[in-house]
């Protein structure tokens, strides 16, 4: 065997990427996600048929109820949680993380490759399901899809960054992520004042509530006090970068058992 074999760091990272993508996609969580999206789709189709003659009501229902409450409020965080929170912690509990950490890929790059894989998969699922929920409403669905796509993209990026950070941090990241998604995100959303500004959903919703949006969505509580779409975009973007950087730093220093 040669003394100086041709090795490529990019190839090694791309192997981490492919392995993560494969292990996350061919998992039980994909089946459960399919069931949940299937249910949501069934209800959407039912509503689209029921509201066929009432265009304005149909758009309002799609945007404010199905997409805002059901999709952004539950499906988006739970899909991100399913893939991101298990990416590192499942390797850890399955005692296979050691194989990744024994390779010559620097730890920050392992983390970054995993993030890229989980993000791609999660974006594929969230945007795919968003499109499938909008399409039954025809042209109005397209308008709604165009408004929601950038919001969902950036919110997914942020959620994946956060839940992957949990995954690198604690062994039972899934439960921590669930507690965050269902308690912090939900509870603080209804609290007046600035506490809610620590959540991803606040910025995602603020973006949707912006005056420039053609959907005319409004907060459900009067004292919601949303920020502008531009601010929301900046915060979500910077938070995503910050969370990934923090995760890379943590993963590169932490000793896993």
């Amino acid at each position: 065997m040669e003394n100086t074999p041709p090795v490529s760091r990019f190839a090694a990272c791309s192997q981490v990427f492919r392995l993560t993508l494969r292990r996350q996609f061919f998992s039980r969580q994909t089946i459960v996600i399919a069931v949940l999206i299937g249910l949501a789709l069934a209800v959407t189709v039912l509503l689209s048929v029921f509201l066929q003659g009432e265009r304005n009501r149909a758009v309002d229902h799609l945007a404010s109820r199905i997409l805002s409450r059901l999709f952004v409020g539950f499906l988006l965080p739970i899909i991100s949680l399913a893939y991101a929170s298990s990416a590192i912690s499942a390797e850890r509990t399955g005692q296979t993380l050691v194989y990744l950490l024994s390779t010559s890929v620097p730890r920050p790059l392992i983390y970054l490759s995993q993030y890229a894989a989980v993000l791609l998969l999660t974006l594929g699922v969230t945007l795919g399901s968003l499109a499938s929920l909008c399409l039954p409403f025809g042209a109005d669905g397209w308008v709604t899809l165009r408004v929601f796509t950038p919001v969902v993209t950036l919110a997914t990026t942020c959620y994946v960054g956060l839940f992957l950070l949990f995954s690198a941090w604690v062994r039972r990241a899934t439960f921590l992520a669930l507690a965050y998604a269902l308690m912090i995100e939900t509870l603080t959303a209804n609290i007046p004042g600035v506490v809610k500004r620590i959540t991803v959903s606040f910025y995602a919703n603020s973006w949707l509530y912006d005056d420039s949006s053609p959907l005319n969505l409004n907060p459900r509580i009067p004292a919601y006090d949303p920020v502008s779409a531009a601010t929301a975009q900046w915060v979500l973007g910077l938070a995503s970068i910050g969370l990934v950087a923090l995760g890379m730093w943590l993963f590169s220093r932490k000793e896993y058992d």
Binding site: S27, V32, F74, L81, A82, S86, T174, L178
Partner: peptide
């Protein structure tokens, strides 16, 4: 844990909203 959490969340959050 992950599929369990998702199913459990589906039952107690998703279905109520639905």
């Amino acid at each position: 844990p992950v599929p369990l959490v998702m199913l459990w969340g589906g039952l107690f959050v998703f279905l109520p909203v639905l």
